[in-house]
């Protein structure tokens, strides 16, 4: 809706002008309307007086009096923070207790159940073992077939033909594997500095 130049300023429009936005339509009205002109001048003066009020200063030693009653945080480990959070509110305590109980409960239930159903477990175990063995054979067979069909199979075979060459290749592969493991461990290690702020 278009604002008429004849309308008096609304409180929101006065705010707008006080904040430094003075649209032409408002300016035109204020210039022609003594009521809005004096209202705006009065508001400006009040705002100016308020913003010029000085800050009051508390008595000397305020900072020390506050600090005497403040307990400075001791940085905690991630585990301690987790424990602190779990015990912080009644809700978090209830949730933590629920989680612990359900883990303990399911552990106990599975132990009790396995004690009462040994023969079922044994037959299940045999079936599982047979399936795993069959699957293993299929995989090994498939891999071997694929390997033999590779064009580089002949030369690779020649490479490990003698016991000395075989030992050399095996040594090389072991070193590469060990180096890879070391690198991985370094990459996934957590930087020590982040522990103190982990809860933020």
């Amino acid at each position: 809706m278009e604002r008429s130049v004849l309308q008096h300023l609304t409180p929101d429009e006065i705010d707008l002008v006080l904040e430094g936005n003075y649209p032409e339509v408002l300016r035109t009205h204020v210039n022609a309307c003594p009521d809005c002109g004096s209202l705006l001048a009065g508001e400006r003066l009040v705002v100016q007086w308020l913003s010029a009020l000085p800050l009051h200063v508390p008595a000397a030693g305020f900072e020390d009096r506050v600090m005497a009653r403040v307990q400075v945080v001791t940085p905690r480990s991630a585990l301690a923070t987790l424990r602190h959070r779990a015990l912080a509110t009644p809700t978090s305590r209830a949730l933590a207790a629920g989680a612990v109980l359900s883990v303990l409960g399911s552990l106990t239930a599975s132990i009790v159940w396995s004690l009462g159903h040994r023969e079922v477990l044994a037959s299940l175990g045999m079936t599982a073992l047979r399936s795993v063995a069959e699957l293993g054979w299929v995989v090994v067979h498939g891999l071997a077939t694929t390997l033999v069909e590779q064009p580089w199979y002949g030369s690779a075979r020649a490479l490990v033909d003698s016991p000395a060459r075989l030992a050399f290749v095996a040594g090389g592969l072991t070193t590469a594997w060990a180096a890879g493991m070391l690198l991985m461990r370094r990459l996934i290690a957590i930087p020590a500095g982040s522990v103190a702020h982990e809860h933020i």
Binding site: E63, V72, V73, T74, I200
Partner: peptide
């Protein structure tokens, strides 16, 4: 605030110094 949470007392004091006057002025008024 992060430093204060890391256990640094001087960070607590800095927060008091920053806001003691505005807070006291508001409450006084």
């Amino acid at each position: 605030v992060l430093l204060a949470r890391g256990g640094q007392e001087r960070a607590y004091r800095e927060l008091v110094r920053r806001y003691e006057r505005p807070i006291f002025s508001l409450l006084y008024r």
